[in-house]
Amino acid sequence: MNTSHAAALLAVPLAALLAACTPNKPTAEAPRPVRTAEIRYDAAREANRYVGTVRARHEVDQAFRVGGKVVQRKVDVGQTVREGDVLAVLDDADYRLAVEAAQQQLTAATTQARQAESDRQRLNALKADGSVSDSDDEKAHSGARTAEATAQAQARNLELARNRLNYTVLRAPRSGVVTAVKFEVGQVVAEGLPIVSIAAEGEPEIVVDVPEDHLANFTKGKFKASLASAPGESFDVVLREMSPEAVPQTRTFRARLKPVSTRRLPLGATATLVAERPTAQTTVAAIPAAAITQNNGKPAVWAVRRATGTDAFALVEMVPVTVHGFRNDDVLLSGLPAGTLVVTAGVQKMAPGLKVALSGADRAVEVSQAAR
């Protein structure tokens, strides 16, 4: 075997050995998609939430002005009524008898008044020739006046009896919707007992109870409200009335707020009121609370910065921040330059220098920041 052939044979195992010892070239890891939020500063605001109820500004309890047994019920809860509509009727038999009795008493009193006046006139004629004394003449005049007064009093009694007969029919004093019915046919109701509530639909309000420790700042806030049936649709409301004294049972103060614009609100609906007011002059940024993590026991966030070159990905780094408070699902913080993008989802999977992929909207924000 010649020398060249031996060298070739030795070269083959050596190449195989070197190939086995050479590590494989690592494959590039794909950038991790992330969701981000831009840091935007605004004046710090304190927000409080209250749960209230939609009520009518004008709601009146209706009651019979006389007592008796209910024989007809004309309305149900939720029914719309107009002014003058019949709500309920009482048994009026006793009141009709009272009208008849008053009529008979008036007839008797009127007859007596005419008789007394006739007697006075006759005595007055006899007085001229001295046949009647002054004392008898005065008695005749007094009797005539008394009988006339009695007749007038009986006329008023008849009018009162007729009014009480009319009161056996309960009518709506104004148009609105029936919000409560507290009686049934056959029930005996007392005079003045509230049995029907009617609310005017034209001026709905939101009624909330404010704790005493919120009272000083409540009137300084700006208010937005939403209904439980449409939580995503908020609308502006303004404070119309604040009770000057606390409700004895709850020790809270009742506030009534009305919509700024004409808006139809279903009576009785549950409403959420958000009261915001500026606090100190500190400016803060609001981002989702899920973006907050910790570094050595202190709050921090993962900030996104553009990688060098023309790569379409970005890198993340942990940056400490100052937390000023929480508002609903957001955290209020400071310590980052305005316009910084921070990771808001999957922060537990982040690591320093990790490549992340931005959405189209986030890349547009990055481009606009670079242009500035």
Rank of each mutant, 00 (worst) to 15 (best):
P337S: 11
P299L: 05
T344M: 01
W302Y: 02
I292P: 07
I287R: 03
A307F: 00
T293Y: 04
F313L: 08
T283W: 00
V331I: 12
K355D: 12
A351K: 12
A271C: 09
T293D: 10
A314N: 10
D329W: 02
F326M: 15
V319E: 09
A300Y: 02
L333C: 01
N295V: 14
M318L: 07
S334I: 08
R305G: 03
V301Q: 05
T310G: 13
A275H: 02
L315W: 12
V321Q: 03
A351I: 08
D330I: 03
L273M: 09
N295I: 06
P320L: 08
E317D: 15
T310A: 15
A290C: 06
N295S: 13
R277H: 06
Q281A: 13
V331P: 09
P352L: 13
T282P: 07
T344A: 01
T310S: 14
N328G: 15
V284A: 04
P288A: 12
D329T: 14
A312Y: 10
K355R: 14
L273E: 07
N295E: 14
V316E: 03
L332M: 15
T279A: 14
K298S: 10
A345D: 14
E317R: 11
V304W: 03
H324N: 12
V321Y: 03
L341P: 00
L315I: 13
A345R: 13
M350F: 05
D330M: 13
K355G: 09
Q281H: 13
P352E: 08
A285R: 01
E276Q: 10
T272P: 01
Q348D: 11
L273G: 04
N328T: 09
A338D: 02
L333F: 07
N296Y: 07
A271L: 02
L336N: 02
Q348R: 09
Q281R: 15
D330L: 12
A300T: 01
W302G: 00
V347I: 10
D329K: 11
A300F: 06
A345C: 04
P320H: 02
T322N: 12
T308V: 03
L333A: 03
A338K: 12
T308K: 11
A285E: 04
I292C: 10
V316S: 02
V274F: 09
A280Y: 11
A271N: 03
I292A: 00
I287M: 10
G353Y: 05
V331K: 10
T344I: 06
T340W: 01
A291E: 05
A280Q: 15
D330C: 00
T282E: 09
A290V: 14
T340F: 04
M318K: 15
L333Q: 08
G297T: 13
A303H: 04
A314F: 10
P278G: 06
A271F: 02
T340Q: 04
G353I: 14
V343H: 07
G339T: 01
N296A: 13
V301T: 14
E317P: 00
T293V: 03
L315F: 07
K349S: 15
P337N: 14
G297C: 08
G325R: 07
R277E: 06
Q281G: 13
P337D: 12
S334D: 11
L333K: 04
Q294T: 12
T340N: 00
T283L: 06
Q281I: 07
A275C: 13
G346V: 01
